[in-house]
Computed example of a mutant assay.
Amino acid sequence: MSKLTATATPADNGTRLDRFLSEQFPDLSRSRAKALVKEGAVTAGGALADDPKAAVRPGITYEIDMPPPVPATPEPEDIPLDVLFEDEHLILVNKPAGMAVHPAPGSWQGTLVNALLHHCKGELPGIGGVERPGIVHRIDKNTTGVLAVAKTEAAHAGLSALFKTHDIERTYLAITRGAPRPLVGTVDMRIARSTSDRKKMAVIRDEESEDGRHAVTHYRALETFGELDKGTGLPAAALMECRLETGRTHQIRVHMAHIGAPLIGDPTYGKHRGIKAYGAGEAFIEATTLARQFDRQALHAASLGFVHPVTGDDVFAEAPLPEDMAALLTALRRM
Results as ranks from 00 to 15, higher is better:
M1I: 11
S2F: 09
S2T: 12
P10Q: 12
A11F: 08
D12S: 08
R16D: 04
R16S: 05
L17K: 05
R19N: 10
F20P: 02
L21F: 12
L21A: 09
S22N: 09
F25V: 02
D27K: 13
L28K: 07
A33R: 01
K34D: 15
K34H: 15
A35N: 12
K38T: 10
K38A: 11
G40E: 03
T43L: 06
T43E: 13
T43K: 13
G46Q: 12
G46D: 09
L48F: 08
K53Y: 03
K53P: 00
R57D: 03
R57Q: 15
I60K: 01
E63F: 14
D65Q: 14
P69K: 14
V70G: 06
V70N: 05
P74E: 10
P74K: 03
P76H: 07
I79V: 11
P80R: 13
L81F: 14
V83I: 15
V83C: 09
L84P: 07
F85Y: 15
E88V: 12
E88K: 15
L90R: 06
L92M: 07
K95M: 06
A100N: 02
P105E: 09
N114Q: 11
N114K: 07
A115R: 10
V130G: 03
R132K: 14
R132P: 03
P133R: 07
P133Y: 06
G134A: 09
V136D: 02
D140L: 04
T143Q: 05
A150N: 07
A150I: 04
T152Q: 12
A154M: 03
A157C: 07
K164N: 14
K164W: 07
E169C: 07
E169K: 15
R170E: 01
Y172V: 01
L173A: 09
L183T: 05
L183N: 07
M189V: 06
M189D: 06
A192I: 05
A192S: 11
S196Q: 13
D197T: 07
I204N: 03
D206A: 06
E208K: 13
R213P: 01
H214L: 11
V216G: 05
V216T: 10
H218V: 10
R220T: 01
A221F: 08
T224Q: 04
G231V: 06
A237Y: 01
L239I: 05
M240W: 00
H250R: 00
A257C: 12
A257Y: 00
L263F: 02
T288A: 10
T289F: 11
L290Y: 08
A291E: 01
F294T: 01
F294A: 03
L299Q: 02
H300R: 10
H300S: 02
A301S: 15
G312L: 12
D313Y: 06
P320G: 08
E323H: 10
M325W: 06
M325A: 06
M325H: 02
A326R: 09
L329A: 03
R334T: 11
M335N: 04
